[in-house]
Design a protein around this nucleic acid. Structure first.
Lengths: 336, 336
DNA sequence: ATGAAAGCGCTAACAG
DNA sequence: CTGTTAGCGCTTTCAT
């Protein structure tokens, strides 16, 4: 049987209140009894039952993390940033994968609520606004990852995807590219839409025509990158450069290009987004926009902690991080 | 204020006992009152407090996952396998990163115990046996990942690294290679040692001499692969094939070989281990042994569930998974 | 078929 | 300084 506060109390010959006091470092305990109790706690290897404490304190010191898929290379680092930050404050994190399915998202939220988490960090599919609004109405502490829901004032930690994509395309243009294709991310997500928007805006600002056949809808998966690029390459008229909605798709694009016996960047330049680890590992190194992933996680956690603890006003908090252009070898300059 | 079982009881005009009965689908409730209660539950969007339930049931429906680092490409898929499997049975998972630090490992175990997890899945540093033994003595449900601790009967899900390496080398031999080098993984880890052992055993079984200069100690990092290969290539006498302790090192090996103006697999064949995503992306595609990562996670979860629920005897459970040889283009046949 | 009451392990007034 | 008491939200005998 597990040792409880009662056991400690009995063995120390004091009341449970006193034991509780020493556990929580409260005043009003003589250093004598304190020592005595601590000794017994040590001997018995007693660990206070956080569940029971949570019940009375109405606090679980646990937060929920809901993401599409921890296997998506974006999330492990974010998750790590969150866990590191939260653990410092004594919180632990329960994580749920949803594969962007609305029903799973709802289930996960309900599950976490029933587990009395003190807050949540969410990366939900774009359409799933109801859930967010419901949480907001209840005043439940929530921070969103990587998305901004219009009409809600729920804090969010994200990068400016539109600007980031714009910068990427601008770079391509500065290298003399004019025939630039884009394989979009999942357009059901905010990030996917914003990056596509940034792409279009850059072309427009630089007076470059956007050809329909150079704008292909992907879904962030590696295979969608592969097939989209295959499709693009079927046409006689190749683009000189392709900007993909994320690095994972760029990997698929690499394969498609290699399949056709073409060379990167000599035949086609490739520009990704996110700078996942693979980007530096593949050859040629993938030029891409780096997301400060760990930092996103860390800041999201800080944000959430702020809301939970100081009852910080969530209304004003919108953290927008910049991405960094990482130049490698997958983009060729057409100038000179 | 959150709605509790009392609120439901009051609004339905019944006792909390009755409400509890319908929540848990117990018999002895007239279908009439059952409907009535269910209606109120629906209306109020009531979610039973799992924490409170856990307190009386002595069950949290939460398990702990302790790993070195979720950012290590091995773990996300394992974690996903665990989460998928556990969620089906109504469990959720709290994860902790330890960076293989013993103090963090101990802290994490204590934390999870205080959170009353029903079991743990652990991937601890090799030296940290005390903690495992302590848990074992208490009969606490634990499954180990990727590690067999001698002298303990704690179940473990792992691949047979020795055999896996043996198979790899055997394959190389079957392709006519006799001058085979090995760049080891971190020999402070069990995996590293076993793979090196498998390498040696295969050579011995096939009566091939192991040259000292063809056995170089690496540490699983890409750069160690690079420098180790450089060192190997400095000698006039090249190996015809090199087997690396993991894929990441193989990547470094690729670079070293390219640096020397040599070709893979024409001049040197390369064989990796793990089949990380990258293996299929680099050119030439890396021949390697695939770890069934998702499956490892899934089985570890099943194992744990078995111990928790059916009080299955943990003594006999040692799941050893086979790796799969993935043939790509980095190995040349010397036959014909 | 239903409810009253006890208790899971802990904290927090309140008294002394 | 210390202990008594009353819950936190839920499940579970045991009556009725």
């Amino acid at each position: 049987m597990k040792v409880t506060i009662k056991d400690i109390a009995r063995r120390a010959g004091v009341s449970v209140t006193t034991v509780s006091r020493v556990i929580n470092n409260k005043p009003d305990v003589s250093s004598d009894t304190k020592r005595k109790v601590e000794k017994i706690i040590d001997e018995t290897n007693y660990q206070p039952n956080t569940i029971a404490r949570g019940l009375v304190l109405q606090k679980s010191y646990t937060i929920g993390l809901i993401i599409p898929d921890i296997c998506n290379p974006f999330f492990p680092e974010v998750a790590r940033g969150i866990e590191d930050e939260l653990r410092k404050e004594g919180y632990s994190v329960i994580f749920c994968n949803t594969d962007n399915r609305k029903t799973w998202e709802k289930e996960s939220i309900d599950l976490l609520r029933s587990k009395q988490v003190d807050g949540m960090i969410l990366s939900l599919s774009y359409e799933n606004c109801d859930e967010i609004f419901k949480l907001e109405k209840e005043g439940f502490p929530v921070v969103q990852l990587d998305r901004l829901v219009e009409g809600s004032s729920i804090p969010s930690v994200a990068i400016d995807n539109t600007e980031s994509a714009y910068k990427a395309v601008e770079y391509l243009i500065s290298k003399g590219h004019k025939r630039i294709a884009h394989i979009t991310g999942d357009l059901d997500t905010n990030t996917g839409r914003c990056r596509a928007e940034g792409f279009k805006k850059a072309l427009k600002d630089y007076n470059i025509n956007l050809l329909d056949k150079f704008y292909v809808k992907g879904d962030y998966s590696r295979s969608s990158g592969y097939y989209s690029m295959k499709k693009i390459l079927q046409d006689d008229e190749h683009p000189t450069a392709v900007f993909t909605g994320n690095d994972l798709m760029a990997l698929g694009v690499y394969e498609a290009i290699f399949d056709e016996g073409l060379k990167i960047p000599d035949d086609v330049s490739v520009f990704g987004h996110d700078d996942i680890e693979l980007a530096s590992l593949i050859r040629p190194g993938l030029t891409t926009m780096r997301q400060p992933k760990y930092r996103i996680g860390k800041l999201a956690a800080e944000e959430l902690l702020g809301i939970i603890n100081e009852n910080k006003d969530p209304n004003l908090t919108e953290v927008v991080l910049k991405t960094e252009l990482i130049e490698r070898e997958s983009v060729k300059s057409l100038l000179d």
